[in-house]
């Protein structure tokens, strides 16, 4: 039997790693991937709680998260491709098109 706390610790560690990627990396693609990592750590938490409480709702929400992530990635990568086509770079600090 695996203590439920272990899952929470793992999720926390992955979340912090993902956050580090989002905050520190320069490449937009890697920032997006770090976001995925953060989403996954949250999903681990949900499923772990569902397992501990013997409730399937945790898994249901995880499924929704996965579905929505797929949509998010499709749109985000579409935006990236469009940005790059208009001669922007992939660096986070240069993507300032919407700045007033």
């Amino acid at each position: 039997m695996i203590p439920a706390a272990w899952y929470l610790i793992l999720a926390a560690v992955l979340f912090v790693i993902g956050a580090a990627g989002v905050l520190l990396r320069r490449n937009v693609l890697i920032v997006l991937m770090s976001l995925e990592l953060m989403l996954n750590s949250v999903t681990i938490n949900l499923v772990a709680f569902g397992h501990v409480l013997q409730d399937l709702r945790g898994q249901i929400i995880a499924i929704f998260i996965i579905a929505i992530t797929a949509a998010e990635v499709a749109v985000a990568l579409g935006i990236l491709v469009a940005l790059l086509r208009n001669n922007h770079s992939l660096e986070v600090d240069e993507l300032t098109v919407m700045k007033g």
Binding site: M1, A4, W6, V52
Partner: peptide, 8 residues
């Protein structure tokens, strides 16, 4: 909430 966990 966190107990020793559930068996697999």
């Amino acid at each position: 909430v966190m107990g020793p966990g559930q068996p697999v």
